[in-house]
Amino acid sequence: MIKIFTYTWAILKGMAITFKYFFIRPVTVQYPKEKIKISPRWRGTLKQLRNEQGEETCDGCRICEKICPVNCISMEVYKDEKKNRRFTSSYTVNFGRCMFCGLCVEACPKKCLVHTPDFEFCTYERESLILTKDKILR
Protein backbone atom coordinates (compact mmCIF):
# COMPACT_ATOMS: atom_id res chain seq x y z
CA MET A 1 0.00 0.00 0.00
CA ILE A 2 2.75 2.43 0.98
CA LYS A 3 4.59 1.35 -2.14
CA ILE A 4 1.69 2.26 -4.37
CA PHE A 5 1.53 5.63 -2.71
CA THR A 6 5.25 6.39 -3.13
CA TYR A 7 5.20 5.27 -6.77
CA THR A 8 2.18 7.41 -7.55
CA TRP A 9 3.72 10.36 -5.75
CA ALA A 10 6.93 9.97 -7.76
CA ILE A 11 4.98 9.83 -11.00
CA LEU A 12 3.05 12.93 -10.02
CA LYS A 13 6.25 14.76 -9.19
CA GLY A 14 7.64 13.85 -12.59
CA MET A 15 4.41 14.90 -14.23
CA ALA A 16 4.60 18.26 -12.49
CA ILE A 17 7.91 18.94 -14.23
CA THR A 18 6.63 17.91 -17.61
CA PHE A 19 3.51 19.93 -17.05
CA LYS A 20 5.60 22.98 -16.31
CA TYR A 21 7.07 22.80 -19.80
CA PHE A 22 3.66 22.30 -21.33
CA PHE A 23 3.03 26.03 -21.37
CA ILE A 24 6.50 27.19 -22.34
CA ARG A 25 7.28 27.84 -25.97
CA PRO A 26 8.59 24.62 -27.48
CA VAL A 27 12.29 24.44 -28.27
CA THR A 28 11.75 22.43 -31.43
CA VAL A 29 11.32 24.05 -34.83
CA GLN A 30 9.08 22.92 -37.66
CA TYR A 31 12.00 22.11 -39.86
CA PRO A 32 11.18 22.48 -43.53
CA LYS A 33 9.08 25.56 -42.81
CA GLU A 34 11.28 27.13 -40.17
CA LYS A 35 15.02 26.96 -40.11
CA ILE A 36 17.45 27.57 -37.32
CA LYS A 37 20.25 30.05 -37.74
CA ILE A 38 23.47 28.45 -38.89
CA SER A 39 26.72 29.79 -37.54
CA PRO A 40 28.87 31.64 -40.10
CA ARG A 41 31.67 29.20 -39.36
CA TRP A 42 29.54 26.26 -40.42
CA ARG A 43 31.54 23.75 -42.41
CA GLY A 44 29.27 22.98 -45.32
CA THR A 45 30.07 22.25 -48.95
CA LEU A 46 33.04 23.91 -50.57
CA LYS A 47 33.20 26.79 -52.99
CA GLN A 48 35.95 28.74 -54.67
CA LEU A 49 35.98 32.47 -54.65
CA ARG A 50 36.83 34.88 -57.44
CA ASN A 51 38.77 38.08 -56.89
CA GLU A 52 37.34 41.57 -57.42
CA GLN A 53 37.99 41.47 -61.15
CA GLY A 54 35.97 38.31 -61.45
CA GLU A 55 39.02 36.18 -62.17
CA GLU A 56 39.57 32.95 -60.40
CA THR A 57 42.12 33.18 -57.63
CA CYS A 58 43.06 29.53 -57.32
CA ASP A 59 46.46 28.90 -58.83
CA GLY A 60 46.38 25.15 -58.70
CA CYS A 61 48.99 24.72 -56.01
CA ARG A 62 47.48 21.33 -55.10
CA ILE A 63 47.87 21.89 -51.37
CA CYS A 64 44.20 21.18 -50.72
CA GLU A 65 44.42 18.04 -52.79
CA LYS A 66 47.35 16.75 -50.77
CA ILE A 67 46.04 17.59 -47.33
CA CYS A 68 42.60 16.02 -47.77
CA PRO A 69 42.48 12.91 -45.56
CA VAL A 70 40.05 11.10 -47.86
CA ASN A 71 41.44 12.21 -51.24
CA CYS A 72 38.25 13.69 -52.55
CA ILE A 73 39.69 16.69 -54.37
CA SER A 74 41.20 16.26 -57.81
CA MET A 75 42.34 18.87 -60.30
CA GLU A 76 44.20 19.44 -63.51
CA VAL A 77 46.54 22.35 -63.79
CA TYR A 78 47.92 24.22 -66.80
CA LYS A 79 50.19 27.21 -67.10
CA ASP A 80 48.93 30.35 -68.78
CA GLU A 81 52.03 31.88 -70.44
CA LYS A 82 50.40 35.23 -71.13
CA LYS A 83 49.37 35.88 -67.57
CA ASN A 84 52.38 33.97 -66.27
CA ARG A 85 50.54 31.94 -63.70
CA ARG A 86 48.89 28.58 -63.30
CA PHE A 87 45.19 27.87 -63.59
CA THR A 88 43.12 24.80 -63.00
CA SER A 89 41.43 23.37 -66.06
CA SER A 90 39.30 21.11 -63.92
CA TYR A 91 38.59 21.05 -60.22
CA THR A 92 36.40 18.26 -58.87
CA VAL A 93 35.32 17.54 -55.33
CA ASN A 94 33.61 14.27 -54.54
CA PHE A 95 31.25 15.15 -51.73
CA GLY A 96 30.25 11.54 -51.36
CA ARG A 97 33.61 11.09 -49.68
CA CYS A 98 34.16 14.49 -48.11
CA MET A 99 33.91 14.46 -44.32
CA PHE A 100 33.76 18.25 -43.99
CA CYS A 101 36.83 18.38 -41.83
CA GLY A 102 37.85 21.79 -43.08
CA LEU A 103 41.54 20.97 -43.46
CA CYS A 104 41.58 22.00 -47.14
CA VAL A 105 40.05 25.38 -46.39
CA GLU A 106 42.50 25.96 -43.58
CA ALA A 107 45.48 25.09 -45.76
CA CYS A 108 44.60 27.04 -48.90
CA PRO A 109 47.32 29.71 -49.22
CA LYS A 110 45.24 31.93 -51.51
CA LYS A 111 42.25 31.81 -49.15
CA CYS A 112 40.08 31.18 -52.16
CA LEU A 113 38.57 27.91 -50.98
CA VAL A 114 35.79 28.42 -48.43
CA HIS A 115 32.91 26.54 -46.87
CA THR A 116 29.35 27.50 -47.65
CA PRO A 117 26.77 27.59 -44.85
CA ASP A 118 24.80 25.07 -46.87
CA PHE A 119 23.58 22.01 -45.01
CA GLU A 120 20.82 20.64 -47.19
CA PHE A 121 22.91 18.62 -49.55
CA CYS A 122 21.06 15.51 -50.54
CA THR A 123 20.56 14.09 -53.97
CA TYR A 124 19.03 11.04 -55.53
CA GLU A 125 22.13 9.83 -57.33
CA ARG A 126 25.68 9.44 -56.21
CA GLU A 127 26.95 11.09 -59.39
CA SER A 128 25.40 14.38 -58.45
CA LEU A 129 27.51 14.45 -55.29
CA ILE A 130 30.57 14.92 -57.47
CA LEU A 131 30.78 18.64 -58.10
CA THR A 132 32.83 19.93 -60.99
CA LYS A 133 34.48 23.29 -61.35
CA ASP A 134 31.50 25.15 -62.75
CA LYS A 135 29.54 24.36 -59.61
CA ILE A 136 32.36 24.98 -57.16
CA LEU A 137 33.62 28.25 -58.63
CA ARG A 138 30.81 30.56 -57.62
Binding site: V27, I38, S39, R41, W42, R43, M99, F100, C101, G102, L103, H115
Partner: peptide, 21 residues
Protein backbone atom coordinates in the same frame (compact mmCIF):
# COMPACT_ATOMS: atom_id res chain seq x y z
CA UNK B 1 17.38 19.94 -25.29
CA UNK B 2 20.32 20.81 -23.06
CA UNK B 3 22.83 19.05 -25.26
CA UNK B 4 21.59 21.03 -28.22
CA UNK B 5 22.74 24.21 -26.50
CA UNK B 6 26.25 22.80 -26.13
CA UNK B 7 26.28 21.76 -29.76
CA UNK B 8 25.21 25.25 -30.78
CA UNK B 9 28.16 26.63 -28.85
CA UNK B 10 30.49 24.21 -30.60
CA UNK B 11 29.02 25.12 -33.94
CA UNK B 12 29.77 28.76 -33.36
CA UNK B 13 33.40 27.95 -32.57
CA UNK B 14 34.44 25.27 -35.00
CA UNK B 15 31.61 24.96 -37.47
CA UNK B 16 30.54 21.41 -36.79
CA UNK B 17 28.12 19.84 -34.39
CA UNK B 18 29.48 16.35 -34.03
CA UNK B 19 32.85 15.89 -35.69
CA UNK B 20 34.61 18.94 -34.43
CA UNK B 21 38.20 18.56 -35.65
Amino acid sequence: REREKILDLYESVCGARLTYN
